[in-house]
Amino acid sequence: MKELNPIFITVLQVVIVLAIAPVFIGWLNMLKCWSQGRSSAGLLQPYRDIAKLFVKDIVLAKNASWIFRFTPYLVFSVPVVASVIIPIISTNLLLSPTADIIVLIALFATARFFTALAGMDIGTAFGGMGASREMMIASLTEPAILMAIFTVSLAGKSTSLAHIAQVFASSVPIMRPSLVFAAIAFAVVILVEGGRIPVDNPSTHLELTMVHEAMILEYSGRHLALIEWGSMMRVFLFVTLGVACFVPWGIAKTGNITEIALSFFFMIIKVGIIGAGIVFVETGIAKMRLFRLTEFLGGAFLMATLGMLSFFILE
């Protein structure tokens, strides 16, 4: 059997994330269309959207600073860097020992910070409003993410993602209360980070409800394409992060080529199922009032904390 080089696997992962993230969003949109009785635009529609945006010209405000021009590239490159760290098809990654899960969260937080700055940069009312909402949501989500991740790290005895995935993948699947609670908290986090429905609606430009869309309202052309592609990758990466932390069974541990092919296949199935779950939640509940979010995200934090406590108490 042919062994693949870790460098090659790492490059492969980046390519997979770049290529599959739009398909994943297309899958979400397709399921959503079906669930609402509409005919969908197909799996590849996000590609067409991105391609269309790339050929369009950029309209830049006169008072746009370097932050506004720099942010799209940052928002695009952060998920690319993250896809080097998260074990998506194999735990045998070149750079996984250099960065752990906390660095990963900090990377995403940096991207979010710059998006908020860019939202305020032009000085329109919508950008500032979106930025302020985004920061409020971030301040409530990040404790929940970190608590969930600490619980996983405690159970996996490391903060390195590849190590955690390896430990869980080689253990027997068993319902551990701490991991179940952490997984529920993480599911909420995926909805929030992806800007999905109870928190934010990705398909609306209604001024009273938009959060992420409000921040990037001034972007156009290839800048918008990069941001859109970046946020698609962000959703996809959070889902794969959830897979790596909570259901890593089937992931390749070596560079064996058949094992990697199999692991890729499992990954597609798992991500597809999680996508269906996201759509189920989205069609099932209405968008929450902004000030109800404190309770929703407080609930996620509570879940993650209960997970951590039950790790100490019950295990």
């Binding site: 068993i174 319902m175 039950s310 019950l314 295990e315």
Partner: peptide, 15 residues
């Protein structure tokens, strides 16, 4: 394991 999971659920319902 199931028993401790149920205990966790009791705690969850309390919350």
């Amino acid at each position: 394991q199931v028993n401790s999971f149920l205990a966790a659920l009791v705690l969850l319902t309390a919350f």
